[in-house]
Design a protein around this nucleic acid. Structure first.
Length: 907
RNA sequence: GGGCGCAUAGCUCAGUGGUAGAGCGCUACCUUGACAUGGUAGAGGUCCGUGGUUCGAUACCACGUGCGCCCACCA
């Protein structure tokens, strides 16, 4: 006996343990493999709504494919998340009053991180279980695992040997808080209120030139002033100390007289050249740009092509260095302190022209939140431009397809303008770069120290002492290998052979660049088929939206509007949360989460539960070998027909990644067709005398309910599994049972139209009753007016149903409607409801006239069309015919309406 | 500066070259033997604007307006 309601808190852990215990999530059987690799959550992470959406969708796909008989592997795992994890552990050390990582030393610190990982890392995997994720947990991988680390080393070495990975000294985005380089993608450019400081750089030897200050309409100068300086402007005054030149555009006549001369770099008291370069925009600012090669990406380019010296101003923490080119007063000070001091000192020398308020785009580290400083350092780079070629081509060819397709444009745009990928990080937690240096600085890249040694000895003789590169790799370097490293590569494992390439990647658009693009590059470069052709890691990439709050605002920690999925699971159950996410996962749309919505879908699962209780108390059970095509009752054939269409819609939705369509198809069928109509229509039979008719309806009801459980299972795995198990003794869990196919249903248009006739009649009568304020409980009489033989037959067969659902006490026939009766026009049939004494003639007349007006308006529109020669000539014949049919139907109804109104006049 | 997306009922969103839909909310009625986490009925829409294509446009195209997002080195 089913309980009064479903208790997710009790049932979910039990059901999940059952699934795992029965190895339901392991790939099995002879079916074609179906593989998804999970976007590995950070080991430091906890489940947020984005994860909930992402993993629910993957789970829907996996459960659906598993039921289709595929050998499904949903490969789980976690990312070591270099910066994030190091930060967490460092904070913890500080909090506990321990010595910091530098004091501890590298080895002890890393050991500490591992310890942290074992104790508190990866709680997100348990949270994914609570969500119902059907990952094969026995295969859980971690990017710092031995196997995955081996893959990283192999890839690094091979890319190096192929010349696709190299060490270079160039400007890099430097995070002064974490004291590491980061890649372009880890920089967030934000608009902030800043200033534009205009300085004078005096010309050498007191030289002067005539600078135009007023122009006529033709743009010719009309007024000049004599200047002994060049005016520059900057948003970062402190960097002036590193200026190597001032540049102007070669076409800029204003500065032509002084190009090639020198000006004084104030404060630094150096003379720097005034050069001509294409870079400055004469129309912006003063048209003259200070060139700080070591601290600005544009200036770096200018400095390089003009051979301008670059002065490194800051250390790894953003403090000014103790070097001769930095005036003593600024040494050791923080960059923002220096900024303030520089402005004051320039002003004190009378060289500050003005300070403008200005919105500026400023780069911030995405993890640290501090202002990023361009720094000139040695780093390792991947030649992404080269690797991107094939990755672009494969998408162009359609070997990998984005869904929705417009994301391919985003992908192309980035890939076609890709910059070298800085992969080294000055951190300790991560894959240490497999490069060793000889005392003279020459570098040896190899998979092991021994191999590096062997190489070095060729150049340096035996016994050369090597030191290993201190740096680790970008976290995304190992993530890029995820689709094949998790399957065992570089070993030739059976899993790799079976499950690579994967079938689809499911992710949000915010990591297309970070992850999708890089997996494409690495996958194509390292994974080849038997003919040595590159294999894409996934033929499809489904990009879903972001989860936003009920107001459409992006959920974020800083806004504090985040909703914890675990809270919702505890409040409403995992099924309700999952269904909410699926029902809103329309392509190209964000998903809004609100309690109200989740509550609504919790109600849906309750509804289903109660339908099952109803089935149970009516002893509905389907024989194991039940053959739907053997069903004879019209009601049976109708619901089997409806169920078949629902099954098609759900499958089409999931196949097409239209999760919202799939969810609404099953929702509508289960609630609005099965519960609202089938169960109601079945009641008279189920509660009537025993016999073959009742047996069949019981069997069909149970059978269709089971199909609903199956169709709903990918979306609401828990409640469906619970009901599946509770309703009958079964050989297997629902999670591994078969997905319903067309053969499981019948297609019967005649049955469909007959039952729909009944449904429409009941609805029409109810509507009239409500409008006429007939008390809901009142039983009334219904008179069929001159019924056709079809009407007689149909009504005759379903009198019980109509009587029960429309509350009709007695049925009769008459040639003409009795006086004072309300008329229900239903297709070609007219029914009268004699409500004498109850009827409000005026209200009834109003009701009928309202519809008359509506129909006349519709007919007017159709007539206009049909009178249009062009329409009749050019519109497709079936459209014209359709319009004529509609007109006839309206016309017939109108006649009946008018007759009914006429009849009221007698009252 | 480039690129992408969105605009349909009070709200959140489906949708289709010919007849406008759902959920929630709202209104009225209903404790009917599965379910009040429910049932029945109902109100509610210039489908952003303008122009074009078409016999016909909410849908296709162009422009405009408004909103959102991503990328980008204007010092």
């Amino acid at each position: 006996m089913l309980n009064k309601s479903f208790e997710p808190a009790e049932a979910e852990p039990r059901l999940y343990a059952d699934w795992e215990g029965s190895d339901a999530f392991k790939p099995s059987g002879e079916g074609a493999p179906y593989t998804i690799v999970i976007p590995p959550p950070n080991v430091t992470g906890s489940l947020h709504m984005g994860h909930a959406l992402n993993n629910t969708l993957q789970d829907v796909l996996c459960r659906y494919q598993r039921m289709q008989g595929r050998s499904v592997l949903w490969q789980p795992g976690m990312d070591h998340a270099g910066i994030a994890t190091q930060m967490v552990v460092e904070r913890q050390l500080a909090k506990d009053g321990n010595e910091d990582r530098r004091a501890m030393g590298r080895e002890a610190f890393i050991e500490r991180v591992w310890q942290w990982k074992e104790e508190s890392g990866g709680q997100i995997l348990n949270q994914l279980r609570r969500l119902g994720a059907s990952c094969d947990w026995s295969r859980t991988r971690f990017t710092m695992d031995e196997g995955l680390s081996a893959a990283v080393v192999k890839v690094f070495v091979q890319l190096y040997e192929e010349g696709l990975l190299y060490k270079d000294k160039r400007l890099v985005n430097w995070d002064p808080q974490f004291e590491t380089a980061i890649s372009d993608l880890e920089v967030e450019n934000k608009e902030v209120d800043g200033h534009f400081w205009h300085f004078k750089y005096p010309l050498e030897n007191g030289e002067t030139y005539e600078f135009p200050v007023a122009f006529d309409d033709a743009g010719e100068p009309t007024e000049w002033e004599t200047r002994d300086y060049i005016s520059i402007a900057t948003t970062r005054p402190e960097t002036m100390l590193g200026d190597g030149a001032v540049a102007v555009h070669p076409s800029d006549k204003r500065y032509a007289p002084i190009v090639g001369k020198k000006c004084l770099l104030p404060l630094a008291d150096r003379y720097i050249p005034i050069i001509a370069d294409e870079y400055p925009d004469p129309d912006f600012g003063s048209g003259a740009v200070k060139i700080t090669g070591a601290h600005d990406f544009n200036d770096y380019q200018v400095a390089r092509r003009n051979d301008i010296p670059m002065y490194v101003l800051m250390d790894s923490k953003g403090r000014f260095v103790d070097e001769p080119h930095v005036p003593e007063a600024y040494r050791g000070k923080d960059r923002f302190e220096v900024r303030k001091a520089v402005v004051e000192d320039i002003d004190a020398r009378g060289l500050l022209i003005q300070i403008e308020d200005k919105k500026i785009m400023q780069p911030f580290g995405d993890r640290s939140g501090v202002v990023i400083e361009p720094m000139l350092t040695d780093q390792w780079y991947v030649n992404a431009e080269e690797l991107a070629k094939d990755a672009i081509a494969k998408v162009e060819e359609g070997a990998t397809r984005f869904i929705p397709d417009n994301w391919s444009k985003t992908y192309y745009q980035w890939m076609r303008n890709i910059e070298p990928w800085c992969v080294s990080r000055q951190l300790w937690w991560g894959h240490r770069i497999p490069a060793w240096y000889a005392p003279d600085g020459s570098v040896y890249v190899a998979e092991t120290e021994d191999a590096a040694c062997a190489k070095a000895e060729v150049d340096h003789g035996a016994g050369v002492a090597l030191t290993r590169d201190e740096d680790v790799l970008d976290t995304w370097f190992s993530s890029a290998l995820w689709p094949f490293s998790t399957l065992g590569w570089p070993e030739a494992t059976p899993e790799l052979a079976k499950h690579y390439p994967t079938n689809v990647l499911v992710t949000a658009f915010d990591i297309i660049f970070f992850w999708v693009a890089r997996m494409m590059m690495m996958g194509l470069h390292f994974m080849k088929d038997d003919n040595a052709a590159a294999v894409v890691p996934f033929p499809e990439v489904y990009i879903h939206g972001l989860v936003v709050d009920e107001k459409g605002q992006k959920m974020s920690k800083s806004k504090g509007n985040g909703v914890d999925p675990i809270d919702l699971i505890e409040k409403y159950g995992a099924d309700a949360l999952r269904f909410t996410l699926c029902a809103q996962a329309g392509q190209g749309r964000n998903v809004r989460v609100s309690d109200q919505r989740v509550e609504g879908y919790r109600n849906f699962s309750t509804k289903l539960w109660n339908a099952a209780r109803f089935a149970e108390m009516n002893e509905c059970a389907a024989p194991a070998d039940f053959d739907p095509s053997s069903a004879e009752e019209t009601l049976s054939r109708w619901i089997l027909d409806e169920a078949g269409r629902c099954a098609e819609d759900v499958a089409a939705g999931v196949d097409g990644y239209r999760f919202n369509d799939a969810a609404s198809a099953i929702y509508r069928f289960a609630w609005n067709v099965f519960c609202d109509w089938h169960l109601e229509l079945a009641k008279p039979i189920l509660q009537g005398p025993d016999g073959p008719q009742k047996d069949e309806v019981r069997a069909v009801t149970a059978y269709v309910l089971d199909k609903i459980l199956a169709l709903l299972h990918p979306f609401m795995p828990f409640v469906t599994e619970e009901l599946w198990g509770a309703r009958a003794a079964r050989a297997e869990h629902l999670v591994v049972s078969a997905w319903p196919t067309a053969d499981d249903f019948v297609s019967d248009a005649a049955a469909a139209s007959e039952i729909n006739w009944v449904i429409d009649l009941v609805t029409a009568v109810r509507s009239v009753r409500a409008e006429m304020n007939v008390p809901a409980g009142a039983k009334i009489e219904m008179v069929a007016i001159a019924p056709s033989s079809e009407t007689q037959t149909c009504l005759g067969r379903h009198k019980d149903l109509v009587g029960r659902l429309a509350r009709i006490e007695t049925f009769s026939d008459a040639a003409a409607p009795p006086k004072g009766a309300v008329q229900v026009i239903h297709g070609e049939a007219v029914f009268a409801l004699p409500l004498a004494g109850v009827i409000d003639a005026v209200a009834e007349k109003t009701r009928l006239e309202k519809e008359t007006v509506k129909i006349e308006k519709e007919m007017g529109g159709i007539d206009k069309k049909l009178a249009n020669k062009k329409f009749v000539e050019r519109a497709p014949a079936e459209i014209v015919a359709e319009q004529k049919e509609r007109r006839e139907a309206y016309s017939a109804r109108l006649i009946k309406l008018k007759a009914a109104i006429e009849q009221l006049a007698d009252l």
